[in-house]
C-alpha cells in the first residue's frame, strides 16, 4: 500500500512545487527582479554611502581640503594612495609649509576598504558614486585627484 501512497505523495509534492513557479510565471509582468542595466543609467541612483571610487571634491574656486598630512597614505593597506608633496611659502605667515603637488590614486589597486576616508582629518577625500570604472588601458586607472592649479582651502588647518 505504501507503493501507492508514495506515488500519491510524490505527485502531490511535485504539483506543489509547480504551483510556486506557476504563480511567479503568471505574475511575471510585474515581478522581474533584474534591472535593465545600461538602459536605466539615467534613473539609476546609488546609495549615498556607496563606495565607487575615491574622489577629492573641489570648490568652484578650485580649492580642496587636503593638507598633505599623508594619513591616508599610511592607512591604505595596498599602497593605493601616493602623495607627492612639496614645501611652499605660506603667503600669510611667510613660513615654509607642506602642500600637495599631486594626490595620486591607483584605482587598480584599491579594495574599497574605506580606511583612507575614515582616517582623513579634514574630509578632503570622499567616496564617488561612479562605478563604471572599466577602461581599455589600465594606466588610465592611475589618477591625480587634485585638479591642476588647485590650492588648499583657507582655514582647513586651523
Amino acid at each position: 500500500m505504501s507503493y501507492f501512497s508514495d506515488i500519491y505523495k510524490g505527485i502531490k509534492t511535485l504539483l506543489t512545487g509547480m504551483s510556486v513557479t506557476g504563480k511567479y510565471f503568471v505574475t511575471s509582468r510585474k515581478g522581474a527582479i533584474t534591472q535593465q542595466y545600461p538602459d536605466n543609467r539615467d534613473t539609476l541612483q546609488m546609495f549615498e554611502r556607496f563606495r565607487g571610487e575615491v574622489i577629492m571634491p573641489h570648490t568652484d574656486d578650485n580649492e580642496h581640503r587636503c593638507t598633505g598630512c599623508q594619513k591616508c597614505e599610511i592607512a591604505c593597506p595596498n599602497g593605493t594612495i601616493e602623495i607627492i608633496w612639496d614645501r611652499g611659502i605660506d603667503e600669510a605667515t611667510g613660513k615654509k609649509k607642506k602642500k600637495i603637488d599631486q594626490f595620486v590614486y591607483h584605482l587598480s589597486m584599491c579594495t574599497m576598504c574605506g580606511l583612507c576616508i575614515d582616517v582623513c582629518p579634514h574630509d578632503a577625500i570622499k567616496w564617488g558614486q561612479n562605478f563604471e570604472n572599466s577602461v581599455y588601458d589600465r594606466s588610465t586607472l592611475t589618477r591625480v585627484l587634485n585638479k591642476p592649479g588647485s590650492t588648499l582651502m583657507q582655514g582647513v588647518e586651523d
Partner: peptide, 10 residues
C-alpha cells in the same frame, strides 16, 4: 523567455 518568466527575469 519562459524560463525567464519563471525565474523573475526578463
Amino acid at each position: 523567455r519562459v524560463a525567464a518568466w519563471f525565474q523573475l527575469r526578463i
